[in-house]
Write a protein that binds this DNA or RNA. Structure first.
Length: 622
RNA sequence: GCCCGGGUAGCUCAGUCGGCAGAGCAGCUCACUCGUAAUGAGCAGGUCAGGGGUUCGAGUCCCCUCCCGGGCUCCA
């Protein structure tokens, strides 16, 4: 019977010479692609997108189809309904129902290779498809230029034809499970000045159980959502009166960010960085000089007028740090000079992109700028990468990788400088032992950069640190130093932020640890619950002993049942929960629930103190 | 900014066809004194986001504004 529970692996496509092709034209020797592989799922989801397009066309004849690709874990199809009709959630359910019927009908996907003019004829009512055909005809899409004068269409059942490169699953029944998730707006070709389309997004899996597993993973991510933790643990909130993306931290939340900031300061000062402090507001002249007003103005808060001058909130601190460098003539002996500041900066993020603490309009960067000689550059970059690993290691975060982005097509700076800086970055990466990949042409126009991504407890990747070698600002600010041979030389400058932003890093930590943060970050890491009144004096004694050792602790008296108090302590993510009852009063012991939620009973007071005191100490940075 | 959804008690939400404003949790009072995730009873709590309109009558229907959430790189 077991064999029937586990169906044979379904083959949905084939691969020949690295290229995915339809199963129908597969020959012996081609590699088979199964449905439950990453590639197989892409094919299956792409086919699901077609099925959805067909379903929408059936429900609303005359629908204009845009594009419908597979995405990282699903698919979408962009459509324009006749008469500019907007889709609602109820419509989504109808579309899903219709699509499932098409899947059940087990219609074949049939490929037709036709000439451009035949394609135009077949798709004459589809304005977006005709536009794509025009682009193909003009050879604007490199991939298609090679395809020559024919294009491929896919016929799904007898009554639906769509322009598509393919490949597709052989029959619609290969789509084991399909779910539509949301409808949203999208622009034709991603251009916000172009026509507005409606994006119907969903996902598909080879089996219903695989879909369920994915949905429950989504639910887990939602359960861990840091915005929810923020409310339940009274850490922070976003008052409507202040405005989108501008958080207020309550005492327990502010405590946590202070600890993050203190840890950052300690780490940086121990690594030879020097503090600077710069204001939040500046005359526009500074950002003229830096060039930011030219290319970054859209992301800045608009200016305030004062004494006939324009003042701006700073979106970054680098120009001010450059002034701090320039304030004195510098000798090569002073370099490297590493200037560090935890600076809150203000950026105008578009309202739709704001997301809890992960995307805010007031963010605090652990920002530093390193000014150094060319011969120091590689060492400095390696030093930054070492610091990053020590920083994240202190939180138990060790699963991360780097990305080196090189010179883009449009850039400033000399070929030699780009070459030199990029080589130094690659050298530093090699020395760091980090796994990294190169993203050609993805660098900023003024800098090659190294980005660090970390993977959290439920497998999501987050971009955190960024390191850039700036090839523009030292020149714009005419920075110099006196070299050993008594000449004025231009220093290299490195921008770097390790947390990225304190707010965003806190969001990542909250989701990674499901709210149970490392005890050293928490204001009151211990809560003591006496079982009944007769244990209250002992509970108070335990708290007093903890406080003598500098540990924040509080008693919750037995006015409520133990179950209620435990439940609250857990939902508020108190790292250490101590229960004391008659037995403990007699023996001088406690019952301890640890941050990882393991429990031990009858722990002698001193043993508990030793464990807790060690856990609440800020990690060593050496 | 644009598309979709939402805004009702401190929080989470229900409110049917337009006909007296509801529940759970939290808060307060009282009783209960409990060994690892919700004890019971009572009390109090509202400009139904704001403005305008339709109507005998609007939380509910229409319009405008504000705010919140999701989505908007993926290119046949």
């Amino acid at each position: 019977m077991q064999g029937q529970d586990r169906p044979r692996r379904l083959v949905v496509a084939a691969r020949r010479g690295g290229e995915l092709i339809d199963l129908a034209i597969a020959q012996p020797g081609d590699e088979l692609v199964v449905a439950d592989s990453p590639e197989g799922r892409r094919v299956l989801r792409h086919s699901a997108a077609h099925v959805v397009a067909k379903a929408i066309t059936r429900l609303w004849p005359g629908t204009q189809l845009g594009v419908g690709p597979a995405t990282e874990d699903g698919f979408f199809y962009d459509v324009a309904l006749p008469g500019g009709l907007r889709l609602s959630d109820e419509d989504l359910a109808r579309i899903e129902e219709e699509a499932k019927q098409i899947v059940q009908a087990d219609e074949p996907f049939e490929r037709l290779d036709v000439s451009l003019s035949e394609a135009r004829e077949l798709l004459r009512d589809q304005v977006f498809k005709r536009e794509i055909l025009d682009r193909i005809a003009r050879g604007e899409d490199e991939l298609d230029a090679a395809a020559g004068a024919t294009v491929s269409l896919y016929r799904t059942g007898g009554d639906f034809v769509d322009l598509c490169r393919g490949p597709h699953v052989p029959r619609t029944s290969s789509i084991g499970a399909l779910r539509l998730l949301r409808v949203s707006g999208a622009y034709w070709r991603g251009d916000e000045h172009g026509p507005q389309l409606q994006r119907v997004a969903g996902t598909a899996f080879e089996t219903e159980s695989a879909l369920e597993a994915w949905l429950s993973q989504l639910a887990e991510a939602e359960r861990r959502d840091h915005r929810r933790r923020g409310v339940e643990q009274r850490l922070f909130f976003f008052p409507g009166e202040i405005g989108g993306g501008l958080p207020v931290f309550e005492p327990d939340g502010a405590w946590i960010r202070y600890r993050l900031e203190d840890f950052s300061r300690r780490l940086h000062f121990s690594a030879g960085y020097l503090p600077v402090w710069t204001p939040h507001v500046t005359r526009g002249a500074l950002f003229e000089l830096s060039g930011h007003l030219g290319w970054y103005r859209e992301s800045m808060y608009p200016p305030m007028e004062l004494d006939g001058q324009e003042y701006f909130l700073k979106p970054m601190s680098c120009p001010m740090h450059l002034l701090a460098y320039r304030q004195h003539p510098r000798s090569y002996r002073e370099l490297p000079l590493r200037l560090f500041e935890l600076a809150t900066v203000y950026r105008y993020e578009r309202s739709g992109t704001l997301h809890g603490l992960a995307r805010v309009r007031a963010l605090t960067q652990d920002d530093a700028h390193i000014f150094c000689r060319p011969d120091q550059l590689a060492d400095e970059l390696a030093g930054v990468l070492d610091l990053v690993q020590r920083l994240f290691g202190a939180f138990g975060l060790e699963d991360f990788d780097a990305e080196l982005s090189t010179r883009p097509a449009k850039s400033v700076g000399s070929d030699e400088d780009w070459e030199f800086a990029t080589t130094a970055a690659r050298d530093a990466l090699e020395r760091s032992g980090l796994t990294y990949r190169v993203a050609p042409g993805e660098g900023a126009f003024y800098a090659p950069k190294i980005d660090l991504h970390l993977r959290d407890a439920i497998g999501r990747r987050w971009q955190v640190s960024t390191v850039q070698v700036d090839l523009q600002l030292p020149q714009r600010f005419e920075l110099t130093y006196q070299s050993a041979s008594n000449r004025l030389e231009r220093p290299f400058m490195v921008h770097r932020a390790l947390y990225g932003s304190v707010e965003r890093f806190l969001a990542i930590l909250l989701e990674h640890f499901d709210g149970v943060l490392p005890p050293w970050m928490v204001r009151t890491p211990v809560r003591v619950l006496p079982v009944a009144h007769d244990a209250t004096p002992w509970a108070q004694g335990v708290v007093a002993a903890l406080e003598r050792r500098g540990v924040g602790a509080a008693v919750v008296p037995p006015d409520e049942t133990l179950g209620v108090r435990l439940r609250r302590a857990r939902s508020e993510r108190v790292p250490f929960i101590i229960v004391v009852g008659g037995r403990d009063v007699e023996a001088g012991t406690v019952g301890l629930t640890r941050p990882d939620r393991t429990q031990v009973r009858d722990v002698p007071l001193d043993a508990m103190l030793e464990e807790v005191v060690a856990a609440v100490a800020m990690p060593e940075v050496g």
